[in-house]
Design a protein around this nucleic acid. Sequence first.
RNA 1: GGCGCUAUAGCCAAGUGGUAAGGCAAGGGUCUGCAACACCCUGAUUCCCCAGUUCAAAUCUGGGUGGCGCCU
Length: 314
Amino acid sequence: MDSKPFVLAVVGPTASGKTWLGVELAKEYGGEVVSADSMQIYKGMDIASAKPTAEEMQGIPHHLISVIDRDTPFSAADYVKMAREVIADILVRGKLPIIVGGTGLYVDSLLNNVQFSEMKSDPAYRESLYALAREKGNDALYAELVAADPAAAESIHKNNTVRVVRALEVIHLTGRLFSELKAESIAEESPYDSLILGLNAADRAVLYERINARVDAMVRAGLVEEARAVCAEGNMRTAANAIGYKELIPFFDSEMSLGDCIDKIKQETRRYAKRQLTWFRRNERIRWIITDDFSKKYEILENSKKAIANYGRV
RNA sequence: GGCGCUAUAGCCAAGUGGUAAGGCAAGGGUCUGCAACACCCUGAUUCCCCAGUUCAAAUCUGGGUGGCGCCU
């Protein structure tokens, strides 16, 4: 018997029914939901990020949703720190923490107990690196990393400027190798005993139909107005990344029809789901709950409960 | 009905006699501080069909079929 506190997690691609399942399981086992979503963490953006409504929450406490201002930078490191605190609090109250979200990096960082050391950013240095890439090309930038940390260079593609710059920044800031710090970061054992449930469709087309339908529902719920307001506000730092806003800009600028922009949102959402699946699929610890029909909620819930019972912690 | 143009991967598209660019979509994958981010990999034994010219045809010729435009 593991003495570490038990934590349940529900992951899966967007529109796979994580929100619903999380709430049902919370009702069943006396749990509280801890969101693991890089967009829902921000205030506003309610429709685009598909935040659960009060009705969907059914009175179950939800944490780490709408807690950060849109113009505040936020990272996986910040997430892990906050989530640990929230989880500790839930455990103290004798409830079951249920992590629900589609941001793979956040879930993995939290459950694998990735250690993010305290370090500041060096914007000027970063900018100098980006300038190097712009002026002399990706190869020149990459050469810096190859020279500084060959092991790190091996795992980062030369065209992935964002990652190459980050690795160099870490080395610059700490005086240590990025590859070394990375290895050390997962040295500590996870403080949680976790069961990860993964929701997915047996047939990709079924998931895609669901996504399309949900985007239409978002539009009916006022996505366009929300996007107009967020775009007008200007502080797009975070929102600029969210699917559902940037795709509408051509419509606001009268360069594309609304219908075409909405189709684009659907397409980007489908691609996002595909990337999420790629991320989660490689995690062998995930206990997949496969359904060929998302409307068979009873079946999904029963299969989930069976998996939880099998695990034997609650 | 006549004349002109055109037909290359799911879509857009280069190639005009020498052995099928590229982009998008799709699929697969990577991922440790912006992750709904960023990045990588994969595709036509074949160019609408048939016949011909040629050592060699997606490229030239003839015919057929489909599309577009103009005319009657």
